[in-house]
Design a protein around this nucleic acid. Structure first.
Lengths: 315, 315
DNA sequence: GAAAACATGTAAGCTGTTACATGATTCG
DNA sequence: CGAATCATGTAACAGCTTACATGTTTTC
């Protein structure tokens, strides 16, 4: 399967610039290329040389010059030919299986964190896929039949992730008998509620029902946002475990890392006056990005989350 | 995930030569590398330079000189480090989804053959995976825990294929309503029985219950062998449709291609004296391989299938 | 005024593939 | 005797990725 096929396919739906294609590929899961320029521009040039597409240079006064590519008749012929070519079986490339196969002399605890981390990665990928399905290029289908097909395609991918999570559960049961069970019960599960303001939703952790205390809790936060179908998150003070507040544990860093990875914007409520030392430096650094802010009150936090950057509290 | 990790992992189980590793990788599904020399020998040299493995040259009198690689203590440390590294989410690389996404103006019939072919490819991959699981490097597990893990790993892969087939079914229902149903009923389904002789099994098509008439029937044959857990197949004369016997249809070629792809050995029963012209040339050519032979009687065919090459009928 | 997004392209490098080169041994 | 398997290696290349280079426009 060549990237040319995908490019040709996209252009068959509507004329696009190289940049457009790049963005579509970056956002799409099933178009499994990374969406790097090099390949796309090269593919476009090659397709142009083969007469499959034509590039029209557009000079607009109030926009950078761009090249709009349009598919030609012979391009459509080529696409038809590719559409009928022998399908390839899916490539099974699950590095984690290799990792698991050779982790022979690992302790139970290590194995468990490994499984937890894997589950988190899969959950994250799933989250991204679902987000893309909602607001991606392919959601506004042209014909009913096509959008039906695209729905099925996304379903296929979502399904693989779901199955993978099921499988992780089975592995956990098989290799972590008993020992793990009790441990998990000790740790109170976090809970959340979805709050709606002005048509915008955000997830708010419920204080006193579990704390953000470890890397895996960061994963759970991502999951909550996925379930709540939002990328906005409120962390009340009472939800932050001492481990989170102690920099040396690394928990804060790992959790924020997770959140930025899945472009979740989080607002934490802390007594800003009481923050000092290295933790203050860390928070200042974290505040530089767009994905995390600390506020004195929940009201301020909410305003930032749903209303943009007004009333932002700079430490 | 680097191939070095996999190589190190294999060597942690037992010392191996580069050639051994190559073969293991070729046969394994979850070790998703193609098993080409270049990479493996390079990886071994690199690991040697890093002190992770040591290569011992063995001069045996009655065998080619070989280098047996053994993992070192620092190699085991490295493996432990890799085992604990952050797991990667599985790569979803299903070229067929791309193909399907852009097959807009294809006819129903074309779409159906496309789905059929895809199903065949997946089924084939599944077959290979199951075969490997049985007689692969990882079937003779060392500890109970490890073989439990490996079972789970193979289950994971088998599961993905199964789900993929389920999905194909759903797609078929969604995009090929009604029209396809009737068509499928016209075509009588083939049937088979598993015959056991001297502890060896082979699949025998049952005459008069469907004919080998198309490419997709070749796929079905692969499926039958997979179900019967054998790679030996008997094709009685009465099972071969006129389309198979007519070379111009290409059916014979496509079916034999399928069978060789999955290393299935098939014996066809035909009146060898009556074979002539281009079809005879084709059969002669096909007979050159190890995977297909024509016989006058079922007895001869069976002997070749289960007993090796004795009593082989050379056209 | 700085950052992000728009827009096009290039260079270097990694991973993995096919194909080639060589030679010994085994099996039918 | 020829083909397949064992065994080690190299060369060339395809595909894809990261990072770089450059410049404009929009947004905060």
């Amino acid at each position: 399967m060549l990237i040319q096929h995908a490019v040709l396919g996209l252009l068959s739906l509507r004329p696009l610039t190289g940049y457009d294609i790049k963005k579509i590929m970056q956002e799409s899961t099933f178009l499994h290329w990374s969406g790097n320029n090099n390949q796309i521009y090269k593919a476009l040039m090659q397709l142009r040389d083969e007469g499959c597409v034509v590039g029209e240079v557009l000079h607009e006064d109030d926009a950078p010059t761009k090249k709009l590519y349009t598919i030609t008749e012979s391009g459509r012929d080529e696409l038809r030919r590719l559409s009928l070519s022998m399908p390839e079986a899916p490539e099974v490339k699950k590095p984690f299986l290799v990792q698991l196969a050779f982790c022979g002399n690992l302790s139970r605890a290590d194995l468990e964190t490994l499984l937890n981390r894997y589950e988190g990665e899969v959950r994250g990928a799933m989250f991204l896929n679902e987000k893309q399905q909602k607001d991606g290029f392919f959601s506004h289908g042209s014909t009913a039949e096509e959008s039906e097909l695209w729905k099925l395609i996304h379903e296929n991918i979502a399904d693989s992730y779901r199955r993978e999570l099921d499988w992780v559960g089975r592995v956990r049961q098989a290799v972590l008998p008993l020992a793990g069970e009790e441990k998990r019960k000790e740790h109170v599960k976090m809970n959340y509620q979805v709050i709606v303001r002005n048509g915008q939703k955000y997830v708010k952790l419920i204080p006193k029902e579990g704390l953000v205390a470890s890397e895996s809790d960061g994963r759970t936060l991502v999951q909550f946002c996925a379930e709540g179908d939002t990328n906005l998150l409120m962390l009340p003070f009472a939800c932050l475990a001492p481990e989170f507040l102690r920099l040396s544990t690394g928990v804060a860093g790992l959790v924020l890392q997770k959140l930025t990875n899945y472009s979740i914007r989080a607002a934490a409520v802390l007594d800003t006056a009481a923050i000092k030392g290295k933790f203050k430096d860390f928070m200042l650094e974290a505040n530089r990005g767009q994905s995390f802010r600390v506020f004195d009150s929940e009201e301020q936090a909410e305003q930032w989350l749903i209303g943009g950057n007004i009333n932002e509290k700079h430490l």
